[in-house]
Design a protein around this nucleic acid. Sequence first.
RNA 1: GGGGGAAUUCCAGAGUGGCCAAAUGGGCCAGACUGUAAAUCUGGUGGCUCAGCCUUCGCAGGUUCGAAUCCUGCUUCCCCCA
Length: 410
Amino acid sequence: MPFPPVAEQLAVIRRGVEKIVPETELAAKLTKSRETNTPLRIKYGIDPTGIDVHLGHTVPLRKIRQFQELGHQAVIIIGNYTALVGDPSGRDHARSKRLTADEVEANAVDYLNQVGKVIDLSKAEVHRNGDWFGPMSFAEILQLCGKVTVAQLLTRDDFAKRFAAETPIFLHECLYPVMQAWDSVVIKSDIELGGTEQLYSFMLARDLQTAQKLSPQIGVMSPILVGLDGVRRMGKSLGNYIGISEPPFEMMKKFMQVPDAVMRMYFELLTDLPLSEIDALLAGHPKTAKTTLARAVIGQYHSAAEAEAAATRWQQEVGEGGLPTDIPTVKLSRSKLTDGKVGAARLLVETGLTPSTSDARRAIAQGGAYFGESKTRIETHDQLISVEAGLLLFVGKKKFCRLELTDNSQ
RNA sequence: GGGGGAAUUCCAGAGUGGCCAAAUGGGCCAGACUGUAAAUCUGGUGGCUCAGCCUUCGCAGGUUCGAAUCCUGCUUCCCCCA
């Protein structure tokens, strides 16, 4: 199985990558791999802490797939033991609940299911780092700890910051980067993928590998994908993500909300469109570029036809202000009506479109509530609405429902 | 072990006896404008039978005509010294 020329491989690898350290060694590794016809071992590790895989996660995953397509060996590490520590890099430091072994395993399976949409799992090695950390004796752990100094640990950015800020750093947290680095030794990685925040661990892995007389790995670091707000990293807790398991239309709506400024990043990191084509798109009307982006990405997780349908539907329902196609039905008892009518504010509450009467009044007062096929604006909170089966109600742009009348008194 | 500080409405953060449903900023919601992008402008952001009323300022009591504000106890968090 011949590998593509090194220059060609480098072009693929470099796309959308923020940093390669050390950059100079990469070509050498690729050359040697090609000469000896040996695939490089591409490591990627994750903690199975219950992940809804979103586009942010797909950035390094897509890079793995690219390596796979170049003929290299993907090695996925499920950090079932590192998960016991919890990533010290901050975001999740308050994670209080300890996952049980069963939960971790269930998460791992679920996770693999999801990443299978991006990488070719049939050609990837999957390891759990508990396989080698579990059987370690305390003596062996001490030996491992003897390879890293505290000063070394303190060069890690988040430890340094926490130390300076005098916030607690627990001893077991110090082991996190050490464990991650040791994974690289065990699986003999040539390249490790991850975000830029992984720099420290990647470098530590190089030290440990060198100490074990192994060829040190190269870190290929992706930039952090920003979320829908265009500022903060894409993440579940921030609610600014697009999940890869979401239905096409949901993804479409989210894509169209993305600020223009992040389109280039999304194109580069999330699609395979040639850079020249991306430039051309971005030079044109932003809306065209955005729909193209959305279709390209959605098509990776759903069929091209579904992506196309989602785009068309978006244009009709949102772009042109048409009626939504899937309007949820809400049951309303006739007993709530008087002479077939009911006050507007009451109606909005009964249908669950607004959580409280006060909220309903606000929505109406601000002109954000409408009813009927033609979206007639509701003028006052005590306006009586004639209710018939199938009546449409809207609050703002995102909340709407169709009424169904029932006879029971509930 | 000793000492000190803090807990306010989604978040941050004002407020130290009545003018407080509680400043300001962020977020979010609605409207205008648009490409449902950004920017901008306007209004809103506890509940209700809504020009009024009711329930909120860690928890439980107390003082007072009146408490987010004062007192007592409790809980939680943080810091400093050792």
